[in-house]
Amino acid sequence: MKRERLFVMPSPFRDEFRIHGFRFGSGRKSLAVVGAMRGDELQQQFVCSRLVHTLQDLEERGELMPGHEILIIPSANPFAMNIGKRFWAMDNTDINRMFPGYALGETTQRIAAALFEHIQGYEFGVQLASYYLAGDFIPHVRMMHTGYEDVELAKGFGLPYTLVRTPLPIDTTTLNYNWQIWETQAFSVYAGHTGVIDVATADDSLSAILRFMAMHGLIRYRSHPGYYSQVVKEEDLVNVKACRAGIMYCMCKPDDIVRRHQHLASILDPYDGSVRWEVRAPVDGTIFFMQTRPLVLENSMLFRLIES
């Protein structure tokens, strides 16, 4: 393993801003993995750090397969993480909305450009991502529908679901989208949580990446074969929204199988505790996403279900 400084930028008042990469093996550029691009992607960085640790161990035991280069970048935004912010600390811009980047552009465009230069040209790209709404997911892998994606490959992670999203204009500046456009098979692995570290789901994500690497001959690794991943189009998810605002008292969790009309949560009046709204499942299905804030606004997204 080689630890490399991929990008360095001086700061007016803080230490240097640095992005480090961990390079394993040599030969064909087979896999690049990017961890936290946002300061609250703790779970994502944790998974990445565990991946570096595991690959070091495999390397010592001679179980990295020859002819493959693997690059792991646990964090592209340590400045935000160190002060508890989600986005770039100076101007609140999101590095993951700046791809493919611009080396002569704004600061986060430059960071994205430098990062993209290092992770371009790999056969596979994995981003450990978070979602723009606060909440918990069933661990899954996500792909953009660009016409270049190969959904069958995503099944190699052995996660319960593979979600395919049709990109909106705002998605065209994300890493996942641009990776695909530049001919890398790109996958976003959603490690369940953001802002916290949950060892069990982190282990699931780590195992999924190792399983994928073993399947494609990058490492020698025996693991549980995983799930037969079900492919879901994002537009087919059934959204359950809040008809009233208040305190959300939840009676279920991600991965629960629910029946139509089943009571999923209650929205309580924050003054007298009375029930303002009983949230019920509109269809039979599985809870794929659940928002986790205790207070909910009217019209906010509470659950996303995979219909049975």
Binding site: N92, L133, P169, N239, N299
Partner: peptide
């Protein structure tokens, strides 16, 4: 600058979505 508690720039979510989150619905 944005809608509090919502990640995306409000001027990047138009024309919105009646079935989407509060911000997209707005």
């Amino acid at each position: 600058r944005g809608i509090p508690s919502f990640d995306l720039d409000m001027n990047r979510i138009f024309p919105g979505d009646p079935m989407g989150s509060m911000a997209e619905n707005t």
